Simulated assay, not measured.
Amino acid sequence: AIKKFGKLLQIAFGEAGSEIIGKNNMESDGAVNPMVAGRKMQAIFGFAIIRAFTDCTECLQEEVMLFVNTIADILHRSGAPNKNIGDAFLLAWRLPDAADLSAPHDDIAECALRACVRTCVVLAETQASDSLRRMTENPKIQERLPGYTTSMGYGLHVGWAIEGAIGSMLKIDASYLSPNVNLAARLETGTNQFGVDILISEQVFSMIRPDLQRLLRKIDCVT
């Protein structure tokens, strides 16, 4: 029973959340104290959003949970999944605390980029599974969005963040607070404006090895 309970907590908080709660917020009596300072860390943050989600929710009704969880199963296979708010997912690829963000970290940066590309390919070419394909072929969805297939937008940015438990004694979430996390979300929003699936910041681009950089293209300079 204790093992099952521990496993449920690990799933509820996620890989990153379990570490945050375990290291920073457990008091000697086992109670969680959210009123403690966070911890500064560095990571590549990925923000992903399911497109046309409002339409899918209205058409799928109860099945929308299966729809979201099928996509989550693909996304969560890489990176440390942190949060899901409806159609949005936040993932983090942690960097060493003393890492120089101006220096290459091609292994971690490429892992983050590869995760986005892999999800794009899986969703676009195979629709991930028979169940996902069946849901997107729902007559109500196809009537509203002819030819609809599941697609997502992705934003990647790197920088510092404060990790910790956010909330109260009644409900807490383990998460990251930072303008760098917000910028990853802004980059995802830009995918609709530029007509692409993935946008990465110049900082993430500089961390990738040159032969892979040549496969990417600069699309704008944004202030």
Score class of each variant (00 low, 15 high):
residue 150 T to H: 09
residue 177 L to W: 15
residue 170 L to R: 14
residue 146 P to G: 06
residue 178 S to R: 07
residue 174 A to T: 02
residue 176 Y to A: 08
residue 163 E to S: 15
residue 181 V to M: 11
residue 158 V to C: 11
residue 164 G to W: 01
residue 149 T to D: 13
residue 169 M to I: 13
residue 181 V to I: 11
residue 180 N to K: 06
residue 157 H to Y: 07
residue 152 M to K: 04
residue 143 E to W: 15
residue 162 I to S: 13
residue 147 G to K: 05
residue 178 S to T: 09
residue 165 A to M: 13
residue 171 K to G: 12
residue 175 S to A: 14
residue 160 W to H: 14
residue 153 G to A: 11
residue 185 A to R: 02
residue 171 K to Y: 08
residue 164 G to T: 01
residue 155 G to W: 00
residue 144 R to V: 13
residue 150 T to Y: 10
residue 165 A to F: 05
residue 177 L to N: 13
residue 159 G to H: 01
residue 153 G to Q: 08
residue 175 S to F: 01
residue 161 A to G: 14
residue 166 I to E: 07
residue 172 I to S: 09
residue 172 I to Y: 03
residue 183 L to T: 12
residue 174 A to D: 02
residue 147 G to I: 07
residue 159 G to A: 04
residue 184 A to P: 02
residue 178 S to V: 01
residue 159 G to N: 06
residue 164 G to L: 01
residue 152 M to N: 03
residue 184 A to L: 04
residue 144 R to A: 14
residue 184 A to C: 04
residue 168 S to I: 10
residue 141 I to Y: 08
residue 166 I to M: 08
residue 168 S to V: 11
residue 150 T to V: 15
residue 158 V to D: 06
residue 152 M to H: 07
residue 157 H to W: 09
residue 164 G to Q: 00
residue 158 V to A: 14
residue 157 H to I: 03
residue 185 A to T: 06
residue 164 G to R: 00
residue 182 N to Q: 11
residue 147 G to A: 00
residue 145 L to K: 08
residue 143 E to G: 12
residue 149 T to V: 08
residue 142 Q to T: 11
residue 141 I to K: 06
residue 164 G to P: 03
residue 158 V to G: 00
residue 145 L to T: 00
residue 155 G to D: 00
residue 185 A to H: 00
residue 155 G to Y: 03
residue 157 H to E: 06
residue 145 L to V: 07
residue 177 L to P: 12
residue 173 D to C: 11
residue 172 I to Q: 10
residue 149 T to Y: 13
residue 147 G to L: 07
residue 157 H to A: 11
residue 183 L to V: 06
residue 165 A to L: 14
residue 163 E to L: 14
residue 159 G to K: 03
residue 168 S to K: 11
residue 179 P to M: 12
residue 171 K to N: 13
residue 170 L to S: 15
residue 179 P to V: 13
residue 152 M to R: 04
residue 180 N to I: 07
residue 151 S to Y: 15
residue 185 A to D: 04
residue 175 S to Y: 01
residue 161 A to Q: 11
residue 144 R to W: 09
residue 156 L to N: 09
residue 175 S to R: 08
residue 174 A to L: 07
residue 162 I to A: 14
residue 161 A to Y: 02
residue 150 T to G: 02
residue 174 A to S: 08
residue 151 S to I: 09
residue 167 G to R: 02
residue 147 G to F: 08
residue 153 G to R: 07
residue 161 A to N: 10
residue 179 P to A: 13
residue 144 R to E: 08
residue 163 E to T: 12
residue 169 M to L: 14
residue 150 T to R: 02
residue 164 G to S: 05
residue 141 I to H: 02
residue 146 P to S: 03
residue 161 A to T: 05
residue 157 H to K: 06
residue 176 Y to P: 01
residue 184 A to W: 01
residue 168 S to R: 10
residue 166 I to C: 06
residue 182 N to F: 03
residue 177 L to C: 11
residue 173 D to T: 12
residue 182 N to S: 13
residue 164 G to I: 03
residue 175 S to N: 10
residue 169 M to A: 15
residue 176 Y to T: 07
residue 152 M to L: 12
residue 154 Y to Q: 02
residue 160 W to D: 15
residue 174 A to F: 01
residue 167 G to H: 06
residue 161 A to W: 00
residue 170 L to E: 15
residue 172 I to G: 04
